[in-house]
Amino acid sequence: MTVKALKAPLTDEDVLQLRAGDNVLISGVIYTGRDAAHKKLVDLLEAGKPLPVDLRGQMIYYVGPAPAKPGKVIGSAGPTTSGRMDAYTPALLALGLKACIGKGSRSQEVKDALVRCKGLYLAATGGAAALLAKTVSKAEVVAYPELGAEAIYRLEVADFPATVVNDAFGGDVYEAGRRQYCIAE
């Protein structure tokens, strides 16, 4: 299995060199956000107000980490189901967000927006939260501390493992992988 290094934040060139099914190790800065934070961001957008974080070029990781034990940077931090963010994602991609990381399939609207805006959807291993937390060297809340685990964190990560699910060309590893390994009855 080949693995590519990916430096975050991303450029269009970074996005366009990757294809569905590629395995990557992400290093750099990523932001967290899940249901409640997405709703707040999109409410601001609709009201024509500025966002608390400049999302251009950034990756959003759908995660609500467990509390950090004393001496740890972050608690266990695996991906949550991405489909719940489908309603919000196209608006953020249009704003310049380059990628999101979660688990599980996306709507056709999100896949179309990834093609239109040159974006990526990646998945990390759901349930591998203790392993994924070890790739995080720094975590700080940058918006909505009142949301607790759902606040927006800025994370510094090194070699965070993920797989490209949907690329900027319409590729989908969930569909392709299933076709490859399905045994018809």
Binding site: P65, A66, K69, G75, S76, A128, A129, A130, A133, P161
Partner: peptide, 18 residues
């Protein structure tokens, strides 16, 4: 990854999943 994750969670007494 899931097998290594289980070892980390057990050794460090942290939740295997957030």
């Amino acid at each position: 990854q899931l097998i290594v994750n289980a070892e980390i969670a057990r050794d460090e007494q942290v939740p295997m999943c957030q």
